[in-house]
């Protein structure tokens, strides 16, 4: 008790009763209401990027990330058995697209798209998100190639759609120009062609890559040469 306070006994008893009663009433009322949870069916249509930018009050980088945090709260009822089964993926993709347009340098929407929403069990939903990742990649290949690479991986291993995986891998090889893009990403198409039994095309691409001198790491070069020899042996 500080010098500026009188003892609690100085407080009239009816005030103490009112305080205790109102506090108990408040807690009981809120406990009875329960907390709100975002459900899949609550996801509203996406606003325009301009509206999102306006709502972020001149802070689009913060606004886009807050919108992502809000968006990722939506799912799914009934546990993790069938993730995002009830989520409207057309709306979800529209939201991701508008959030990305709000802050095009953010990786958050593409990370969530490739690593979370595209990994859904439902192939049709996954394709919808992968198409979004591909479209976003075309706008900024050097920055967004990792997400398309992951989409290619999903197309190959999850959807078993080698043609789609090859298309994505081909675009990564064709459109990225930054020297920091690793060779494994640019070589993806070769290995997919191999899986597709398109051995001649794989041989030409791999041979061209080795001849270009872009592979400088000796171990990597040795590995690729072995793969080339293996492909040539299979062709014979």
């Amino acid at each position: 008790m500080s010098r500026d306070e009188r003892p609690a006994s100085a407080v009239p008893s009816w005030i103490l009763v009112l305080l205790a009663t109102s506090l108990a009433g408040q807690v009981a009322w809120q406990a009875a209401r329960g907390s709100a949870a975002l459900t899949a069916s609550d996801l509203p249509p996406a606003p325009a990027a301009g509206a999102l930018r306006a709502a972020s009050l001149g802070e689009p980088a913060a606004g886009a990330r807050l919108a992502m945090i809000w968006l990722q709260g939506f799912d799914l009822r009934g546990g993790n058995v069938a993730r995002y089964r009830e989520l409207d993926y057309a709306r979800l993709v529209a939201w991701l697209r508008q959030i990305l347009a709000t802050d095009p340098r953010s990786n958050y929407p593409l990370f969530a798209a490739a690593r979370v929403y595209a990994e859904v069990e439902d192939a049709a939903r996954a394709r919808l998100v992968m198409r979004f990742v591909h479209e976003a990649y075309l706008e900024d290949p050097d920055r967004r190639w990792p997400w398309l690479a992951h989409a290619a991986f999903l197309a190959k291993h999850r959807l078993k759609d080698l043609a789609l995986a090859r298309r994505y891998a081909h675009d990564i090889d064709r459109l990225t120009t930054d020297a920091s893009v690793p060779l494994w990403a640019k070589q993806m198409e070769i290995f997919i062609l191999e899986d597709m039994n398109e051995l001649e095309a794989a041989r030409v691409m791999l041979g061209g890559l080795l001849a270009s001198g872009r592979v400088r790491d000796p171990a990597e070069r040795r590995f690729l040469e072995q793969r080339l020899q293996e492909i040539e042996r299979r062709i014979r």
Binding site: A36, A37, L38, W70, Q72, G73, D75
Partner: peptide, 8 residues
């Protein structure tokens, strides 16, 4: 609260 209890 809803965001805190989200699936992710």
């Amino acid at each position: 609260q809803a965001i805190a209890s989200g699936p992710l």
